[in-house]
């Protein structure tokens, strides 16, 4: 799993590359948690280059989004889901409770609206 961060207008855009599964989910969680500790609370999780997500990856998304909303008045926006990954968000119902955008730009702008 490759992880990159870009900061734009105080929004941290975290772009993942690779499978988001039980083998890689801890790395993603630690990466975002480190930024939360440094004071960030608005995140875009850009999944353009994620071909696969399992329940282990979804669990990290759920835990981080919940924490950002409940403890930091922040949020985690999701962007650029590939079709098979999008299907997993749909059957889990997560698409109903998270804000999901077509691309990372929209997801970033979503914080100023």
């Amino acid at each position: 799993m490759k992880i990159e961060e870009n900061i734009l207008n105080d929004v941290s855009r975290v772009s993942l590359e690779g499978r988001f599964d039980a083998d890689t989910c801890d790395t993603v969680e630690a990466f975002i948690r480190e930024r939360i500790e440094k004071g960030r609370s608005q995140f875009v999780l850009n999944m353009e280059n994620v071909p696969f997500i399992s329940s282990a990856g979804l669990r990290v998304v759920i835990i981080i989004a919940r924490e950002l909303r409940n403890e930091y008045q922040g949020d985690l926006h999701i962007s650029a889901l590939q079709p098979t990954v999008n299907k997993v968000f749909e059957i889990s119902g997560l698409n109903n409770v998270l804000r999901i955008f077509d691309d990372a730009e929209d997801a970033t702008l979503g914080f100023s609206k």
């Binding site: 759920i62 909303r69 409770v97």
Partner: peptide, 13 residues
């Protein structure tokens, strides 16, 4: 599934 963000644990999917 209704309360994924509120429930006590995030497991069982």
């Amino acid at each position: 599934l209704e309360n994924l963000l509120e429930g006590p644990s995030a497991g069982g999917l």
